[in-house]
Amino acid sequence: MKNRDYLFAVSAIRANELNLLKDSDMEQLINAPDYKKAVGILTEKGFGTPQGNNYSKMLDEEIEKTWKLINESAPEANALKTFIVKNDFQNLKAVLKAEMTGNEAEKYFVAPCVFDSEKMYKLISERKFNELPEFISETAKKAYDAIVKTGSGQLCDIITDAAAIEAIVSFAKESGDGLLIKYADEFCLLTNIKTALRAINTNKNRAFFEYAIAENSIIDKQQLIDGALKGRDEFLEMLSQKGLSKIVQAVENGTSAFEKYCDDELMAIMKKAKMTVFGISPLAGYFIARETEIKCLRIILSAKLSGVSNDIVRERMRELYV
């Protein structure tokens, strides 16, 4: 696709960017006296109304609406699969676990996704792994074998999680968009570091790392594994030597601070899309903007229900797109 083919979609998205929540809107929501008032503010701003305390469904629908808007405006949204392919792997996990436990998978399905989740369920039930799309078929088989042979849900999870990251990077490269590729590489690096830190804390062995860490162009997989197997301090030292001292600083500030740092770093990359008119990156930027907005709303609404203080919520707010 030529960059100019997205002109219609980019303008349509620009018009919708005006409806994105700003820092002042988030502050208003944080200051709302209770959950009901916060939901009222959101409804005034065009969000749906949640059923009682179950705001999750309403927020999921907002993401689906965003995807629908992008899909309808863009001549083809193939390149944007980068951002939704993780949901396919989420659905794969749900299907595999349902296969093992005999429970229903449907209620765990996440949308939007690249491949129809019901169809995936059917194909896996019939063990027709080869008929799954190429980006997921091998992982599905590998994860299925792992869960059958070992009965370990955790092994199945780490196989699918690492494959999801590699699929994100692969779709980004396929798009040919520099910003998307940069985003995917950075996402892969940050997720690898998160995974490595969790594995270090739980004393996992090399085999675990081999499964859980995805190939990355910023820090080589084997180098990252070798560093992680030496222990937390050595691992952080290695990151510093690679010029990633900002990440090390964020890690040392605690898990929540690191999570926030990761999201803000990725947002900083996508914010460059605000200056772009041609190409798919403005659409990607809008999708990430909506995802981040929804993430912030989840934090605020769950805090309203559980009575977490406003200061803690403010600390956890992510950098917004606008």
Binding site: R4, L7, F8, V10, S11, A12, R14, A15, N16, S73
Partner: peptide, 12 residues
């Protein structure tokens, strides 16, 4: 070119 961009905005 401009018409395409304009149509996208007008649609919203």
């Amino acid at each position: 070119i401009v018409g395409e961009a304009a149509a996208g905005l007008v649609s919203e």
